[in-house]
């Protein structure tokens, strides 16, 4: 469990990115932070592994204050996946995956063995292990990024818009893959995105952020959809538009669900 208690982050230039945030991220679940740019979602994420230092407040992981820990050690215990994968271009795929275990002192051969299994887990062919990142496609690079994040078998996985830079088809594949991996591994995942569909798809809990890291609404996707807390939330999730505003029409004696424009999307099973 990760807990923020009245955490504020003020950058040297005076911007308050996060203002007195209090938030609980439950263990072994996926929490998605969603918001437009400037909502402080990445800042919140990066405060968890102290890539960004809070200005005030407390952040605890399983009841332990993270500011009592060495930041470098802390980061080695937390998986991190970012947009554009952030792979080290001068290391082969396999060496990228083993980076953190090797930093932690695991023997190289051992780490490599484990890494090959991880490649299977993220759906990558083992033959890609000896390639350099630049020789892979964007989607493959992103899978390596996920494998690297998982390599040290961390309890927590931070994902900063990891699928933001790949095309929609690949993104959808990667999302399904992540859902499957999470079903198997049950990590505490903190996922940042600006895409509300992605948030609803992946999140057990969704935290919708407004400017300055203020929580506009927090809850399961169903809770948010069924009861938007404000106009801002309603607009952001598009509650009144397209395939979020479904209604039922009776056709041939059956309940057919249609969207805003009257296009059928399915049939209600009673």
């Amino acid at each position: 469990m990760i807990e923020f208690r009245t955490v504020t982050k003020k950058f040297p230039d005076g911007t308050v990115a996060v203002d007195e945030l209090s938030l609980v991220l439950p263990a072994r679940q996926t929490t998605v932070l969603v918001g437009s740019s400037g909502s402080g979602k990445t800042t919140i994420l990066r405060m968890i592994n102290r890539m960004v230092e809070k200005t005030s407040g407390d952040i605890e992981i399983d009841g332990e204050d993270i500011h009592a820990l060495n930041p470098v050690k802390l980061r080695r215990s937390i998986g991190y996946v970012m947009q554009n994968s952030g792979l080290l271009p001068h290391r082969k795929v396999i060496d990228n995956v083993t980076t953190v275990p090797v930093l932690n002192g695991v023997k190289k051969a051992e780490a490599r063995e484990a890494a090959l299994t991880l490649l299977d887990t993220v759906g990558l062919d083992r033959s890609l292990a000896e390639r350099y990142p630049s020789q892979l496609s964007g989607g493959q690079q992103q899978r390596v990024g996920v494998a690297r994040g998982l390599a040290a078998d961390p309890n927590i996985l931070l994902m900063d818009e990891p699928f933001g830079a790949v095309d929609p088809i690949v993104r959808s594949e990667l999302q399904q893959e992540l859902i499957r991996i999470q079903r198997d591994l049950g990590k505490t995942i903190v996922f940042v995105t600006h895409d509300i569909d992605e948030a609803f798809l992946l999140g057990d809990q969704v935290v919708l952020l407004e400017k300055g890291g203020r929580i506009a609404q927090q809850g399961t996707p169903a809770e948010i959809l069924s009861k938007p807390a404000s106009d801002f939330v309603a607009t952001f999730i598009g509650a009144d538009r397209g395939r979020r505003a479904l209604r039922v029409e009776v056709v041939n004696g059956r309940n057919v669900v249609v969207d805003e424009d009257g296009r059928p999307t399915g049939v209600l099973q009673s």
Partner: peptide, 25 residues
């Protein structure tokens, strides 16, 4: 910058990051 941040996020100390990531790159 992304690679540098990724290295930090994975837990390279500043010294390790310089010699193992930035300098080779």
């Amino acid at each position: 910058a992304g690679v540098r941040q990724a290295a930090t996020a994975m837990g390279y100390s500043a010294w390790q990051r310089f010699w193992r990531v930035e300098f080779p790159l």
